[in-house]
Amino acid sequence: MATSERLVITSTINGEERTFLADSRDSLLEALRERLNLKGVKEGCNNGNCGACAVILDGRLVNSCCVMAAEIEGSTVRTVEGLATPEGLAPLQQCFLEEAALQCGICTPGFLMSSTALLAENPAPTDDEVRFWLAGNLCRCTGYDKIILAVQAAAEQMRTLKK
């Protein structure tokens, strides 16, 4: 008879060390939403195709529906909840609002995390590079042009902030 186990997992989530209970069958997506109450992580397809569940794991973009919760013992995870600071929204979040790069918003956390990973690696991407990078994120209502505009506006802001 197949069984699963209760696990105690310790990892750094959005900069804070967290210890939580999970089941060995939980995906990272399930653990973040159900065990840690991080409901910004969205479930779209649950099979790796839509990017709504994207988070940054040890500095790399991953789809949390394709990661087991048990795998993050000792790791560092960033979710959309970790983007804003007490001072305000991150430039990407602000630009998504200003450029109207969302409608229903279910895809937005995934786009924000994916774009965060892109701009960390490539602070001045071309439009083609943005499109290629975001090909794993699906949006069924906004249309991609506004999303590309928002990412480019944020990239520009972030470059000026750095100067």
């Binding site: 197949a2 069984t3 995906s27 649950n46 099979n47 790796g48 789809n63 529906c65 394709c66 990661v67 087991m68 048990a70 795998e71």
Partner: peptide, 30 residues
Amino acid sequence: ETSRILAGGTDVIVQARERRRVIDLFVDIK
């Protein structure tokens, strides 16, 4: 026989979830 290697998980986690394979142990080799 029902144990499986877990590498990146991009095939095998989905297969386990959709019950396309009977799996009762993931061995993470990373």
